[in-house]
Design a protein around this nucleic acid. Structure first.
Lengths: 352, 352
DNA sequence: GTGAAAGCGCTAACAG
DNA sequence: CTGTTAGCGCTTTCAC
């Protein structure tokens, strides 16, 4: 049914010629302007269909100065927390008519810096960045003026909008929960040697504060450092903790993935969870609701984080240079089996 | 250190003026052309730095007719299989200098159609689509000429390049494995009522073929239908299978997520895996390597799928209208605990 | 080696 | 209500 359309390379001009009107009129139709006669509109629409016309977004962007595309830069898409977050961001962005393009930084400083420096040129209208390696200093130095929203821990009072989690408070809550259920030898998995890792630092602090508050010992050998926050790192860390002379009876993992690794490793060693060892994670990824045992975890409000980030960006696009906003997203503690929560059915089971 | 740069809105012209050269020269420098005097290059580079110049990609795209952006359209980013796939695609695309923009279709026909119709206008150079709801008919009807690569099951000999998995063969292998370990009452989870669901259809066929081959009964009540391929659907389906008069002693789940849900549900009912019930999944997502028990699964070569898809696109961009290519990506069966594999340590444990 | 000018497809002024 | 025109920032002939 090719009516002579040269591929889909038809431009406004072609459509205009075919419909016997001016480009402006076609533009009006395409953009849904109201003041167009029904008959003209119909003629134009027919020409559009026949030629299979699609607007050239590059030209529109060049003209309008905006692309309706934003970038979301995060460490890894296959870390469930970030996958879930990305899903929400894409959803929210869609409601604004935006398209989301993904940059994977792998948590590398170099790549985060590239993103920050505007590697995307003027292609994107805004940027949402979840920094792992970069700190306040790098952010201060930023020259690119693309609207920026930061995700994650509080990076001081940086020059950018920021959706934060109260890492210290949440870590304290997680640890306090382990204290509450009667554990006394509470370990932590997820400390990081890198000086710039804010997240690990803050969560460790919350952990230590909670121990101090409870008058419980904070043994250095109960704090396991990791390189990354993957399952394998959690498993390896757990293994080391089990070799300590006086092994812990509870462990607070700085994310769910490590907690799942730790769970599995404990299982390999014949250690019962939660009887011998209570485990708490962080992120509330779906895996933890179906694991055996199900995982007690800090549950940050991901939906909220995503929606606030997108709203921040939207606000920036309207009024550029207000002082930076900051929102602290709420969290809850989801108590499940791994810390002795009721051995109730998994959520799916309950829903049918 | 603001040298008067008006934000980052500097254009080639501004840079040219500041450096005392023509725009062409600046363009040459920016694009790394060789025949530029070292001194000129230095002067231009300095002006670029001072003005914090970033090329306007929209203008470049308009001129060159390409954006170096491709779209990846998949059902949901937080389905681990797709998250892992997306990660690989982004990696491969990056090596080609491309940026990837993500479209979430939620597996909805309507949204897949939009993507296919070129909702992105001329913004993208190519499209990789993992269709769930759309079939051959819709693909034949496509008029948009953006290069397209299809992912997933074989959609007949469509008009587009295609990276397929041999669903029937893999499903047969999975089922045959359950036969091999001595199971006789083998169920399947993942059939779908929708007529257009190729994937479910083909996997079901492989399952049935393997049963026939083994001379085993194929009871309809052992085939559980689901709406989606999430953990909750697998758990619910498992629950139904356990209520059947003669419950199965093995179950082949059409993806890992459902298998994990089934695992959890079995656990809730006090059923031992693999002793009472063997479970096989499909996708080889990381979760299944750390679950308890670890999950036997069909492992498609995701890296290969991603790299071939990107290569197909690259080839299309060079020579447009060759006949469609098709590659069938290999798969293996990863035997783990859920089907009686050795109760060895989880992979992470082994690596330290 | 470098410069001048045209034009990619679109929208926004401004006429009519 | 519709047509004409200029120009967004860039690359690309073609001169010099």
């Amino acid at each position: 049914m090719d009516t002579g359309a040269p591929g889909s390379r038809a431009s406004l001009k072609h459509v205009a010629e075919r419909a016997g009107v001016s480009v402006k009129t076609v533009s009006n139709v395409v953009n849904g302007y109201l003041h167009v006669t029904a008959s003209t509109r119909a003629r134009v629409q027919q020409a559009i269909d026949e030629l299979n016309y699609r607007p050239n977004l590059a030209a529109r962007q060049l003209r309008q100065g905006r692309s309706d595309v934003i970038a979301l830069a995060l460490p890894e898409l296959d870390l469930p927390y970030f996958a879930e977050l990305a899903r929400s961001v894409i959803k929210c962005a869609e409601e604004k008519g935006w398209t989301v393009l993904i940059d994977q930084t792998d948590g590398l400083a170099e790549r985060e810096q590239l993103v920050l420096d505007g590697i995307r040129g003027r292609l994107i209208d805004g940027l949402i960045l979840s920094p792992i390696a970069l700190g306040a200093a790098e952010l201060e130095r930023r020259r690119d003026t693309t609207p920026l929203v930061l995700l994650g821990e509080r990076v001081f009072d940086g020059p950018a909008d920021h959706v934060a989690i109260d890492n210290v408070a949440a870590a304290r809550a997680a640890t306090a929960h382990l204290v509450d259920i009667g554990r006394t030898r509470i370990a932590a998995i997820g400390a990081q040697p890198r000086p710039s890792s804010e997240t690990a630092h803050l969560r460790l602090r919350g952990y230590q504060e909670a121990l101090a508050e409870a008058g419980l010992p904070a043994r250095p050998e109960w704090v396991a450092e990791v390189d990354q926050y993957h399952r394998a790192d959690g498993a390896a860390a757990m293994r080391r903790l089990l070799d300590v002379p006086e092994p812990p009876d509870a462990v607070f993992c700085f994310n769910d993935l490590m907690a799942l690794g730790a769970l599995r490793e404990a299982h390999n060693h014949g250690i019962r969870v939660p009887e011998d060892l209570a485990v708490v994670g962080w992120d509330d990824i779906e895996d933890g609701r179906y694991s055996t045992p199900t995982l007690t975890t800090i549950s940050p409000d991901k939906q909220k984080i995503a929606s606030v980030a997108v709203e921040f960006l939207a606000a920036r696009l309207v009024s550029g240079s207000e002082p930076p906003h900051e929102v602290t997203a709420p969290f809850t503690l989801a108590v499940r089996e791994s810390s002795g929560g009721r051995r109730d059915r998994a959520p799916a089971a309950a829903s049918a």
